[in-house]
């Protein structure tokens, strides 16, 4: 009875403490750049009305979703092909290593040349930044399929599409998810900066607008909202991951108990 209660207290104590400190430390602030937390919080509902959520947050999220999904599909598909053939892998490796090493944000000006400044550009930027971690992790995962498992499948006549679906992709799924997780944080970064660069709506655009108009409390609410969004997306991701990779976490836990 006491343990869960203690755990709850421990989990809440620090956040509450931090918020309290922020609240009181900023309470009498006259610094325009650091408004009192009270002001930020009271501004929040005024700024992020339903209308604004629909007009700015939703488009951002849709672009993120589209780019991320495209990157996931493309990355897994290409990664499976490259990972399955030793020679293809050897041919592609140096090029992939280079392309992965390019910091994704510099793709924004490049892709703007091709796709202008519309939604296509933003989706393309997000997709082209997110694809590398997915692709490279898929290659590693596909390559590392256990030979015994692979021969067992062959012995039972599990080949072709069934092998891909039941053996290769499942076996690579822990690595694929590692890639997807890295891609998610890159995707959020690219979503924001592609909108900061050139846009007429979206979260990144709005926050920069606030900053340029010196609507400082508004800007702070935007930062809070972005943080909240990042947190929520990571929670959703974890839920999905726990469902899909339940077997993997169990396997790891059991092999840790008896090495």
């Amino acid at each position: 009875m006491k343990r869960p209660a203690l755990r709850l207290v421990l989990a809440l104590a620090l956040p509450v403490l931090l918020v309290t400190v922020w609240w009181f430390a900023s309470a009498g602030s006259t610094d325009v750049y650091r408004p009192p937390l009270r002001t930020i919080l009271t501004t929040f509902p005024d700024v992020w009305t339903g209308e604004r959520l629909r007009a700015d947050v939703l488009p951002s999220l849709l672009r993120l979703l589209a780019g991320y999904a495209a990157a996931a599909v493309l990355g897994v598909a290409l990664g499976t092909v490259i990972g399955s053939y030793r020679r293809v892998r050897a041919v592609c490796e140096p090029v992939l290593e280079f392309l992965r090493a390019v910091p994704p944000p510099v793709l924004v000006p490049v892709i703007m040349l091709f796709a202008g400044i519309g939604d296509t550009m933003k989706v393309a930027v997000i997709a082209s930044g997110c694809v590398w971690p997915v692709l490279l992790n898929t290659v590693e995962g596909v390559r590392a399929v256990d030979p015994v498992l692979s021969e067992t499948a062959r012995g039972y006549g599990i080949t072709g599409a069934a092998r891909l679906r039941h053996v290769v992709l499942r076996s690579a799924s822990p690595q694929i998810f590692t890639g997807l997780r890295q891609a998610l944080s890159i995707g959020i970064i690219l979503m924001v900066i592609s909108e900061m660069f050139a846009a007429s709506n979206g979260l990144g655009f709005t926050i920069v607008q606030f900053q340029r108009q010196f609507a400082i409390p508004g800007m702070w609410t935007g930062i809070l909202l972005l943080g909240l969004l990042g947190f929520l997306l990571s929670v959703v991701f974890q839920l999905v991951e726990r469902r899909v990779l339940g077997w993997y976490h169990g396997l790891r836990a059991s092999s840790r108990r008896s090495p």
Binding site: S185, I189, I207, M219, I223, L226, F231
Partner: peptide, 20 residues
């Protein structure tokens, strides 16, 4: 234990949010 929840909350905040 005391910092776990705070870390879990702060970590996924995209750093570009701090740009402005």
């Amino acid at each position: 234990e005391a910092t776990a929840s705070t870390i879990e909350f702060l970590r996924p905040i995209p750093s570009v949010a701090l740009i402005p």
